[in-house]
Write a protein that binds this DNA or RNA. Structure first.
Lengths: 220, 220
DNA sequence: CACCCAACCACATAAAGATGTGAAATGCCA
DNA sequence: TGGCATTTCACATCTTTATGTGGTTGGGTG
């Protein structure tokens, strides 16, 4: 049985994550329209990305960052360890430093802005599938500069007080509230109130999230 | 006084550093041939890059890496601190990790291989002049990977099972037991027993210690 | 001076986590 | 075939954490 001309024997399987329904549909139409792509799944967030990837076996994932529920960065962190070679292309409106940095750190293989034109987008999907690293030029510039600039010195970005930094450091070191209280000679209730304040400032709500954030943002 | 059509009022000033005389001349011809570029200097190494830059005031520097005398990387390190915003485009035969890494660290704004076609090269010079970061795709991929997944082979030192690694990843991502159970479709008691096992293997006894260890040992 | 903020403390409640004991199903491999 | 690791689940208990609502003190600033 011979394959017909111009009909690829294997389609490149794409899965989309994008919360905007209209955009998700448009992207699906665009990508399905190309003759060697097939969209085998499109979801509004990354809540079940592990199962979905297991079932759908995509060749490329196209991922928005800002989604309700599990967002693109979190999704990336979940999926990347299990699928180290799966090309994942971020497609987002954010071109600020922090988002780019987080995405790259989490193992994105490309980073495009949503204003990318449809034909360029298809070209870039091919590129990432073939092992390239498509980036819009402003992103590429940021990536290079992220590398070059050596000190993070952004550890004041959350405006933690000295005492709060001290407590956070102890949390990161694995201390319980009781141990912290003993270590710096304050009551456990005071430890609680410090930690509550830290959570507010870091926008987290558990000890392990605070610890993770401290590592990721090089606060320690 | 009106500018004539198609004749830019300001030319983009280029300085070249390239030791191969023939190539240097060819590049000069190519770039001067474009109607909005002018080569205002071309040198065989970076020995006097500071003075040359001061005098010639280039808008873009095009730089080879391997040159006798002060080479491209050293030149970059000399010039970058004084001119942090001057676009510098590396143009070289090396696409190995170390050279790319060194150049990026020293503050290059773009990195092209010499096999780049002449018309592409002119396009890329425009791009770097306009704040972009032109890279050949193999370089872009290297840059991303330098950032993201450097080690990730010593993560077997604790002999975590696949399932345990999966659970640990979700812990690191800030999931509660209940959320983990929901995500991977097992009961919360099973989550407990996995986590207990993880704690034994990592020699910790709390979630945040496990998270911290995961970061420190680059398990994530 | 009044005001804010950092740092301290207390009490209470609900949720989450840690630990222990025990057990069943699967698959591998020697 | 029997042992071993992995994965799954249940029940019980106790500790820790998270959150809320208060409060006092002292330093600094407009």
């Amino acid at each position: 049985m011979l394959p017909l001309p111009n009909i690829p024997t294997t389609m490149i399987r794409i899965v989309l994550y994008e919360d905007n329904t209209k955009l998700r549909e448009n992207l699906t139409l665009l990508i399905d329209g190309a003759n060697d792509f097939i969209v085998c799944g499109a979801f509004r967030n990354c809540d079940h990305i592990l199962q979905q990837t297991q079932e759908l076996l995509p060749d490329v994932i196209l991922m928005d960052i800002d989604m309700p529920g599990t967002n693109g960065i979190e999704g990336l962190r979940i999926i990347r360890p299990q699928y180290p070679d799966l090309p994942i292309l971020m497609l987002t409106v954010f071109d600020d430093n922090q988002h780019v940095f987080d995405a790259i750190k989490a193992g994105a293989d490309g980073y495009l802005l949503k204003k990318t034109s449809p034909d360029k987008l298809l070209e870039y999907i091919h590129e990432v599938y073939e092992g390239g690293a498509p980036m819009t030029s402003s992103i590429a510039r940021q990536v290079l500069h992220l590398f070059a600039r050596q000190p993070s010195d952004k550890n004041d970005k959350y405006h933690l007080s000295d005492r709060e930094k001290e407590v956070l450091q102890l949390l990161v070191n694995g201390y319980s509230y009781k141990m912290i209280a003993g270590e710096i000679f304050i009551s456990i209730d005071t430890v609680r109130s410090h930690i509550k304040k830290i959570y507010e400032k870091l926008h987290v709500n558990s000890k392990s999230e605070a610890v993770a954030k401290a590592f990721r943002d090089k606060l320690v």
